[in-house]
Amino acid sequence: MENNLVVQAKDVVKTYDEGRVQALNGVNLDVVSASFIALAGPSGSGKTTLLNIIGALDIPDSGSVGIEGRNLESMKEKERTTLRRERIGFIFQQFNLVPVLTARENVELPLEILPGFDRAARKKTALEMLSLVGLEGLENRFPNKLSGGQQQRVAVARALVKSPAIILADEPTANLDSENGMAIVDLMKKMRDELGSAFILSSHDPRVLERVERVVQLVDGRIDQ
């Protein structure tokens, strides 16, 4: 089991505003590969902060976070960027697709900054991924010509195209209607089954929480046991 750990957070503390706001207060979390878990809790409970720290976008004030056995606190910014580029995928609430790129180009984007993918390989992989998320035929559309659900599918494909160890999805259904939202969760679960990446979602939507394998409840920056 120890070998399958992709995330290991120990006593993670994070504060903002010079310590006045306690976002995380001693969080411990282990995530194994191919997990499908959700961080749940009300607004301000620390879900996004924890995702940011696991995603190497932020560093804890104290405690430690290991990603596939590598300790984040000891990494320099450049190393964290490399880690994100190679091992972590992100899905955002607001999709955050690059508006000037087509669906295929958006999916190709993570591969363009990875070594070992020539143009043809990038295109082939992106098209395969778009096909997997059900967007065959829409590859050349720009984001503004896609529905919210379709945009989030592109975002899922973009996050998965480099076969990362971890996918972090911050409120991935919040900007979608319930039907599209649940379809996205189901899609993510299907992709987890096919590709084996660990998914960590944040959400307070009960229907999302029903679909995950494990719910980690956060309250006031602590995990509610």
Partner: peptide, 16 residues
């Protein structure tokens, strides 16, 4: 700014 943030999250370096 959000696009920049997303690109950084994807692994784009500040220099890029």
């Amino acid at each position: 700014t959000r696009e920049i943030g997303a690109l950084r999250a994807l692994g784009f370096t500040p220099r890029l």
